[in-house]
Simulated assay, not measured.
Amino acid sequence: MNRFILSCLILFLAGCASKSADEDAEKTTAETPTPDQILVSPEQQKAMNLKIGPAAQTTVSDEVKATGTVDVPPQYMASVSPLINGVIKSVNVLPGQRIGKGATLATLQSLDFIQMQQDYLQAVSQLAYQQAELQRQKTLNAEEVGAKKRLQQAEADYGSNRALVSSLALKLQTLGTSVETLSKGKLSPVMRITSPVAGYVTASNIHLGQQVATADVLFEVMDQNHKHLELSVFENDAFKIKNGQAILLNDPKLGTETLRGRVYLVGKAFSGDARTITIHGHVDNERLEARLIPGMFLNARILTGSRTATTLPEDAVVRKSQHGFIYVATGQARTYRRIPVKLGQVENGRIEIIPQKPVDLNNVVVKGAYLLEAQLTKGDEAEE
């Protein structure tokens, strides 16, 4: 009898122990989060100051990314070469110097230039004699005492020399010499090399005593009051670009303020192995345009339209390049699940998210996501 009672007691105690173990196992399973979940303690919850909120449907701009440089139109750039061979007598400007249109950049000493002035004066003097001779022959011919052949010869000589005088005068004016001053007998020993545009001297390639020829580029001058953007867009995005679309430039070199512009011209042919098309843009704000330097490299965004997208505050997204993670409340106390998302446009402090699988976005951690990420990955970092 005692043995029977003892056996029953042992079976009863074993059953209680088994039931307790099962309850503990169920409790542990319920409280142990999966690898993509995190359970925070009440103290952590309070310290993190997590805030929960829903995602929103907002209007975002579609955009095309482009790269390029700052440039100026060709009519505002000049390469200055001498129009006659000679030796540099003086240099009057330095690179970076602001000059006006027609300013003297340098002077050139040339025997050919001096000879051209001499030829002009001699031709003018000869023209005066030939004009008088022509008038005399006309008078004699009218009185029928002169030969008609002499009149014809006088007319030919006068016409030929008049063409020579006109040609020499035009050449000297092109070289910057005043024929009115030259007609007074004042020959110039040097020729002025002048700038055809106003702007900044960007290059000077000469020095005193240098022998130069008409093929040499002595100076380069650029007018920077008419800058524009030369951007390149890949073939896949080219069809999205239209005249008048907004261009945004966010670059630390330009300061914190966004520089805005407009698409002015769209290229009609692709170029290079990269298959890109050229976009010509103008800047809206002249004050900000002054910060641009010709040749500066740019990263730009061209706004091509708008659409409705699912967005969250930027603080709600843990960014990993073009992808990231968000955290949503699971419904269990202080438990949050990490959800991978693809990232889209960023506007006005909100970022577009595209979840990789269906998920309820009504209980998203909109503040404190980075704290949860740090807590979740703390063990992984320690193992590394």
Rank of each mutant, 00 (worst) to 15 (best):
D273E: 13
N285E: 13
G255M: 10
H282T: 14
N299T: 03
V283D: 13
V283E: 14
T304I: 05
T310L: 06
G272I: 13
H280K: 06
R262N: 11
A290K: 13
L265I: 12
E257Q: 07
T310D: 01
P252C: 03
A309L: 00
N299R: 15
I279V: 14
Y264A: 13
R275H: 04
A290M: 09
A269V: 10
R307C: 01
G295Y: 03
L303D: 07
F270W: 10
T278N: 15
N285D: 14
T308H: 12
F297C: 04
A300G: 08
N299G: 04
G305M: 04
G267P: 05
N299L: 02
R287S: 00
G281C: 10
H280G: 10
V283C: 12
R301Q: 14
L265K: 12
N285F: 07
R291G: 09
T258V: 09
T278P: 03
V266R: 15
T311H: 02
R291Q: 14
R301S: 13
T308V: 08
V283L: 11
T258H: 06
A290N: 07
N299C: 00
R287A: 04
T276Y: 03
L265P: 05
K268H: 13
L259E: 00
V266P: 14
H282Q: 11
T310Y: 04
R287M: 00
T311N: 01
G272T: 02
Y264G: 08
V263Y: 12
Y264Q: 15
G272A: 08
F297E: 15
Y264E: 14
D273G: 11
T276K: 07
R275F: 07
L303S: 03
F297L: 09
G272D: 11
N299P: 01
I302C: 04
H282F: 02
D284P: 01
L298T: 05
K253C: 08
P294Q: 05
R260S: 03
T278K: 15
R301T: 05
T311D: 00
A300R: 08
H282P: 06
L259A: 08
G272V: 06
L303Q: 15
E289A: 13
G281A: 10
T258M: 10
G295S: 02
L254E: 06
L298S: 03
L303F: 06
R287K: 15
I277L: 09
S306Q: 12
L265R: 11
T278Q: 12
G281E: 07
R275S: 04
T276L: 08
P252G: 09
D284T: 06
S271K: 11
R262W: 05
T276H: 09
S306W: 04
A300N: 08
R301A: 13
L254W: 05
L292Y: 10
G295E: 11
A300S: 06
L288N: 14
G272N: 09
